[in-house]
Design a protein around this nucleic acid. Structure first.
Lengths: 338, 338
DNA sequence: TTCGCTCATGTTATCGTTACCAATGCAAGT
DNA sequence: ACTTGCATTGGTAACGATAACATGAGCGAA
C-alpha cells in the first residue's frame, strides 16, 4: 500500500519540474507572468504527480476565497433557483463560486446561516429579503464585504439592493382585476409571520383593495410557508365554502394558484368564468397549464444576473456608493382571468 | 474612519480575555475541554470585539474543511433539490456544509466542476449519476476522500453508491401498462446523449417492450435535456400527429408528462380514456393535477438522507468497504392511466 | 557602451488557526 | 504523605500557498 503517503504539494511539483514553488504557484494562475514552456512543464508535472491545487492554503495566504455567499429561503423553489443560477453563471466567469445556504423562511435560521457563511470569508454575501434579526444586521454590516439584499425593497438597506416591491406588484394585479370588473376578490397566502415577501404581497393586496374602496375580508391563510400546490388546493376549497360569491382570487405564488385551479377543476367550478385566478412568479407551470395562469413575472433570473453584475462592479471598485437596482415586475394576462 | 483596521483575530480575543490563543480556539469548539466560565468569557470578549471565526485558517491547519461537495445536473429540478435538502439536513447536525455545483447535464462540465470542488478539499464528494469522463473518474479515485455516486447504479462504481436502476423502474411501469392492456406505448424523452438517467429510462423502456414481444417505434426526442413541461407538450403534439393510434405514453419525468397532459387537454384528447400518461419522479404536480399522474417515486429525499448517513458512517470509520444502498422505486398508479 | 525597462524567476516571511506536547492544580485513592 | 488521574491551560511549530520584494537576463534607445 503505497497510497498512504501524503498528497503532493506545490513543493513536490516544483522539485519535479526543477523550478521554485513560487513559479509553480504562478503557473496555476491565469494571468501570472510565467513563460509558456515553464507553465506547460509545471502543469505536466502536476498532472503526473496527481497534484491537486489546495485552495485552503491559497485562501489563507491571499485572504481571498472567491466565494460568494448566498442565502435563499428554500432550495426547492424554482424562482429562487432561477436567481441563484443566473447569479452563479454571472460570477463564475470570474472564478467566483456560490456558497449556498437556505433559511427555511426563518430569520433565526438565517442568523445562524449568515454567521456560518461569514466564517468562510466570502467576497460578498447575497441575502434574500430585507427583514433580518438585529444580530444578522450587525453581522452583515461589520463583515467588511459587500452585502446585497434581493427580492425586496428593504426599508433600511444594509448595503446594496437588487429587488422589487412585492406589495406594488400585487397592487397592479388588483388594479387590473378591479378594472375589468371583479369585486369580490380573495387572497390566498401562508400564515403571515414567516414569509415576509408573502406578507408584503398580502399587505399590498389589502392596501390596494382599500384604495378602491373595497374591504378585503377574503383572506385565506393556508398554513406555514412555503405554501405550495396542495395548500393552494385546500385554501381554494375553504374559499369556495366560506365565500361562495368570490369572483376572483389572487394567490401568493403560481404554485398555490395552480393548486387552487385544480381544486376548481375537481369541483367543476369554471375558471375564469365563475372565478378568476391570479398567481405570482411566472413559474413554468402557469404558462403551460389549462387554462394558463395570469401572473406576475418578477424576473427572478434578472435579479440574479443584475446581482452578479453589481458584485463584479463593487469588487472592481467601479461602484462607490450603495447600488439600488429596482426590478419592475410585469403583469402577465393569461386565460385564468379576464 | 476607524474601520480600516484589520479584523480582530483569536490573538486579540485572547489578549482581551486574558488567556492564550489556544484557549480561545478551544472555546470555539463544541467538545473541547475548557471550563464553562472561561468559555463564556472568551465568547463575550469575541462578541464585544466583533470577532468572526476564520474558517480559512482553521481549514488549513486542521486539514478539515467540513465541506461535503455535491454535484447535481440542474439546480432547477425539484427531484435533485429534494435530494440535496435531505443530504444537507442529514450532515448539517455534524457541522458539515454542502458545497453545491451543477453540471448542466454535461460530463465535460462535470469534470471542470469536480476539479474545482476538489481544490476546496471537501471531506467527501457526492456526484449525481454513474457516467463520467475518464479524467473525472481519475480525479475522484485519487482524491483520497469518500466518493458517492447517486441516482444510478453504475456499472463500475468508483466508491460508494446510493441509487436505483432507472431502466428497471421504467420497466415496471411498462409491465403494468401492458398488463392492463396498453400495447401502442410511446416514450417521450430528451435527446439521448446528455441526460444519462433519461437515456437509461428510454433504454429500459425499449428493453421492456422487447421482452413483451413488442416493437418500440414511438420514441419522441424532445430536444436537449433537461426537458420540461413545454417540451413535453410539444412532444405530445408530435406524437399525436405521427402515431395517432398510441394508447399510452411514458415520459422521462413528471414535468414532461404534465406538459403532455396539457397538450391533450388543449386538443380535447381524453386522458386516460383515449391515451394514458405515465411520468417519473413523483413531483408534487403529478399528485395535484387533474387528472393526477401515474408515476414512479424514486424517493429523491431518501437518496439524500441515506447518502448523509453513509457519509457520516464512513467519516466515523464505521464502514470498511464500499457502501451499496439500493433504493427501490415505487410505481404509483393514479388517474392518468388504468 | 550604458542606461532603463520589461519579463521571468527566486527568496523570505507570513496568513490565523490548531495539533502536539507539556505543565499545572486539585481531588481522590492507597 | 504520595501517587494517580482528570480537567484545564499554555507554548511552539506547522498547515501549504503566495505577497512583497529582489534578482538577473535580454533588448532597444541614447
Amino acid at each position: 500500500m503505497h497510497n498512504i503517503r501524503k498528497p503532493p504539494t506545490m513543493a513536490d511539483v516544483a522539485r519535479r519540474t526543477g523550478v521554485s514553488p513560487m513559479t509553480v504557484s504562478r503557473a496555476f494562475k491565469r494571468d501570472a507572468s510565467v513563460s509558456q514552456e515553464t507553465r506547460e512543464a509545471v502543469l505536466r508535472a502536476a498532472e503526473e504527480l496527481g497534484y491537486v491545487f489546495d485552495s485552503t492554503a491559497s485562501n489563507l495566504r491571499s485572504q481571498r476565497t472567491d466565494f460568494i455567499a448566498v442565502t435563499i429561503p428554500s432550495i426547492n423553489n424554482a424562482n429562487f433557483a432561477d436567481t441563484v443560477r443566473a447569479l452563479s453563471d454571472g460570477v463564475s466567469e470570474r472564478g467566483l463560486q456560490i456558497l449556498l445556504g437556505y433559511t427555511n423562511y426563518d430569520v433565526q435560521e438565517e442568523e445562524r446561516l449568515v454567521e456560518q457563511l461569514l466564517r468562510r470569508k466570502p467576497e460578498a454575501i447575497v441575502v434574500t429579503g430585507g427583514k433580518h434579526t438585529p444580530r444578522t444586521r450587525k453581522l452583515l454590516s461589520n463583515a467588511g464585504i459587500p452585502v446585497i439584499e434581493t427580492w425586496d425593497i428593504p426599508e433600511e438597506p444594509i448595503g446594496h439592493v437588487v429587488g422589487f416591491s412585492n406589495a406594488q406588484a400585487v397592487r397592479e394585479m388588483v388594479d387590473h382585476f378591479i378594472c375589468v370588473g371583479y369585486r369580490n376578490i380573495a387572497f390566498i397566502g401562508g400564515d403571515a409571520s414567516r414569509d415576509t415577501r408573502g406578507a408584503d404581497r398580502r399587505a399590498g393586496f389589502i392596501a390596494a383593495m382599500k384604495d378602491h374602496g373595497l374591504e378585503a375580508p377574503r383572506l385565506i391563510a393556508a398554513g406555514p410557508p412555503p405554501i405550495s400546490m396542495r395548500e393552494g388546493a385546500d385554501a381554494m376549497g375553504q374559499l369556495l365554502e366560506r365565500f361562495p360569491d368570490t369572483d376572483a382570487v389572487i394567490c401568493v405564488s403560481d404554485l398555490s394558484a395552480f393548486g387552487a385551479l385544480t381544486e376548481c377543476q375537481r369541483r367543476g367550478v369554471a375558471v375564469p368564468e365563475k372565478i378568476a385566478i391570479g398567481g405570482f412568479g411566472d413559474y413554468e407551470i402557469g404558462a403551460i397549464c389549462v387554462p394558463s395562469l395570469t401572473t406576475i413575472n418578477a424576473f427572478a433570473d434578472e435579479i440574479g444576473a443584475r446581482t452578479a453584475e453589481l458584485i463584479l462592479d463593487v469588487l472592481d471598485g467601479k461602484l462607490a456608493e450603495a447600488g439600488r437596482v429596482t426590478i419592475r415586475p410585469d403583469l402577465i394576462l393569461r386565460q385564468s382571468s379576464r
